[in-house]
């Protein structure tokens, strides 16, 4: 384990990108969703989070970019400790891309506008420059021709690829994926996973909540199993899938197999 102090020093390859320690969260209705979660993600790593429904995976992921508040513990993202300063949260959100299960594309904007909105408004970069970058990104995810269509005119898989491109257009240093393929028809899952594989190959730091075992086996640096608001097991994929250490992990793998 890297000590937290390393995270604040200059980022070198393999440096700590996300450091969560003892994170506890209660929802407004008193539900104890996270019960002391620790996780460290290094640069270039792909961490896959698995676990039964309701175990707090989404909640945990969403604390990384301040979409959910937490009551106890510390989270440090790319050297910035998530605190009470609103601008720090905004700064982290700029560096952390997020892809949702439901895509959440902006239906009133064209695909291109979806990509360019944030870079223009937040990073205040010139429009033409952002547009050409957006078109390149769209080409990379394979939907160059659809740039001027509206999201509603695309298939689910295309929409999710646009959503990934939209996040990339902000040039993030970390990408978070919350079940990116769960809302997709089976035949569209692969095209999205392919884009994510490419991204991982290029060295993007990624935290992925997914139930795609094959993806986890091939791409993940480590697999994290969460249950009842706790991290139960962290292990390299080979070990996790073939020789899980914990009873809970075996039970879970038995269910999804």
């Amino acid at each position: 384990m890297t000590s937290p102090a390393a995270a604040t020093s200059t980022t070198i390859a393999g440096a700590v990108m996300i450091e969560a320690q003892g994170v506890e969260k209660w929802y407004g209705n008193g539900y104890h969703a996270l019960r002391g979660v620790d996780l460290t993600v290094h640069q270039g790593e792909v961490v896959v989070i698995m676990g039964p429904s309701g175990s707090g995976k989404s909640t945990f992921l969403r604390t990384f970019n301040g979409l959910e508040e937490f009551q106890h513990g510390t989270i440090t993202v790319d050297g910035i400790t998530l605190g009470d300063d609103l601008r720090q949260i905004d700064a982290i959100r700029r560096e952390v891309g997020m892809v949702f299960q439901q895509f959440n594309l902006f239906p009133h904007l064209t695909v291109l506008e979806n990509l360019t909105l944030a870079p223009i408004k937040v990073r205040q970069r010139p429009q033409h420059q952002v547009e050409s970058q957006a078109l390149e990104l769209l080409e990379r995810v394979g939907i160059h021709e659809q740039a001027h269509k509206y999201p509603g005119q695309l298939s689910g898989g295309q929409q999710q690829r646009v959503a990934i491109a939209r996040s990339l257009c902000m040039e993030p240093r970390i990408m978070l994926f919350d079940e990116p393929t769960s809302a997709l028809d089976p035949e569209m899952v692969q095209e999205v996973l392919e884009v994510m594989r490419e991204l991982a190959k290029e060295g993007m730091t990624m935290v992925v909540v997914t139930h795609e075992v094959k993806f986890a086996r091939q791409v993940a640096s480590r697999v994290v199993l969460m249950a009842e608001g706790r991290v139960v097991e962290v292990a390299p994929p080979d070990q996790f899938f073939s020789n899980p250490q914990h009873e809970r992990s075996k039970q879970f793998l038995g269910q999804i197999a």
């Binding site: 979409l67 905004d90 959100r93 891309g97 997020m98 439901q102 959440n104 909105l117």
Partner: peptide, 23 residues
């Protein structure tokens, strides 16, 4: 409007007023 729209806008780094105005 689904809550995900505001969440997506915020997670892209848009501050609240801009997320409201543009999204």
């Amino acid at each position: 409007i689904p809550a995900g729209q505001l969440e997506a806008a915020r997670s892209l780094g848009l501050p609240l007023p801009q997320a409201l105005i543009h999204v």
